[in-house]
Write a protein that binds this DNA or RNA. Structure first.
Lengths: 233, 233
DNA sequence: GTCAACTTTCTTGTATACAAGATCGTTATT
DNA sequence: AATAACGATCTTGTATACAAGAAAGTTGAC
């Protein structure tokens, strides 16, 4: 399920339509949607290719996420309503319960609730939307990290610090704590990926086989045809 | 050209396909693209509706843009390469020439170049991409502002301040100046819109006529059919 | 006259057919 | 034998046909 489609794999429209027992039309629309959300890259007249974010790109995305969350925190510290404060407390309590149970899945869900309350509390609906989108995209990699030893407890402490700063209306501290809260996930990711790379070192080359760059071998005679790749978008 | 499609207007697929002399298929794909970029809202089984960002949303977007640019500046101050520094200077000089000529269109183009160099110089390609996307979306509203009296000169001064901070490697100052540089556009927008509203006050009501909320009159008898609007995505 | 159920019409969503570009294989030429 | 030109095949992009859901109009009951 997790590794159903390999990085670089070409997604053939007819194959997919056969597999899901629909015509090519909805398949095409779905592929365009995935392309918009970045999971797939489409090259005109060539097809759609699976694009998992590279490690570099993931770290970059976590950096941006950290900044967006910091902005949410800064604004929320000034703008949060009593009702939202209450929901923040509820989410924090739920997180605490999950942590005490040691239930990572549960913590993960409640953690998400906590952050979404913050996005809303920023009072900037565009920001909230963008933060949610990126949060969702980084979701699987965030989830991975909750397995790291002691991460749940640390995460919880950071949540309480954020909450404290917001209750006190300390915008800059809320921003800083949140920035760190996310940035540390980028750091942890580095560690996880390093370990993962050690294990998977042997099979890495194979997974690249179907990518358009490495897989489609341009023969010398075809090189005369000068094509500009004309990347989608 | 500018106001070819009115806010809330329904975009009929067959009408559009007739107008552009293509079949419905590419029209549908184009509409989906516009929906992804936020210019159009699609409601399942109902159609696509023109959605210009509201004034509130615009201000929100400028706030986020300010933060993204600030982040670019902070990173660029530390990571910019000599080659990028050179391109920044080139863009700044080009801006200066345009300003001296008083050519707002030209300044607008070169200003864009200046900012794109900064995005690149951040060394975070994801950030650069997101900043470019939002920049592009705010483009028409930015452009409006260059007509404001004295804005060109002020903008130019701010550019030089940004450049100075980056040359000196002062990350926080670069961030602060850039944040202000963008934030002021949100402020100016407020003024422009206030003036615009005064002029257009009479015609405002009419432009809403075709929106699905106000235009589609549900008759009482139809209210029994409980539909969840099921907003797209 | 008003309101509800039915029917008609219109529009989106999906399937299929066709056109055009791209890759791959074959053949001919140097 | 290597390379270029040509043609066959496959795949995407577009057009058209069909199905299903939504809005509007019509008829009938109270």
């Amino acid at each position: 399920m997790a590794a159903e489609f390999a990085e670089g794999e070409r997604l053939d429209e007819v194959t997919l339509s056969a597999r899901f027992a629909v015509s090519r039309t909805p398949v095409r629309e779905a592929l365009h949607g995935l392309a918009a959300s970045g999971l797939v890259e489409t090259i005109p007249r060539r097809g759609a290719f699976v694009r998992y974010p590279s490690f570099i790109k993931l770290v970059e995305m976590f950096d941006v996420m950290a900044e967006l969350e910091a902005m949410c925190g800064r604004l929320a510290a000034r703008r949060i309503t009593p009702e939202e404060l209450e929901r923040l407390e509820e989410a924090a309590v739920a997180c605490e319960r999950a942590m005490e149970k040691g239930d990572a899945d549960d913590y993960y869900r409640e953690n998400e609730r906590f952050h979404h309350v913050l996005y809303q509390a920023s009072g900037n609906s565009y920001l909230a939307g963008e933060a949610s989108k990126l949060h969702k995209r980084l979701q699987p990699f965030r989830r991975l990290q909750l397995r790291v030893r002691g991460r749940l407890q640390q995460s919880m402490r950071e949540h309480r610090q954020v909450q404290d700063a917001i209750v006190k209306g300390d915008a800059e501290r809320a921003a800083d704590v949140l920035r760190g809260h996310i940035a540390i996930q980028g750091e942890n990711l580095r560690d996880l990926m390093a370990n993962f790379a050690k294990q998977q070192a042997g099979t890495a080359a194979r997974s690249q086989s179907a990518s358009p760059e490495s897989g489609t071998r341009f023969r010398d005679k075809d090189m005369r045809k000068i094509r500009n790749p004309e990347r989608a978008e």
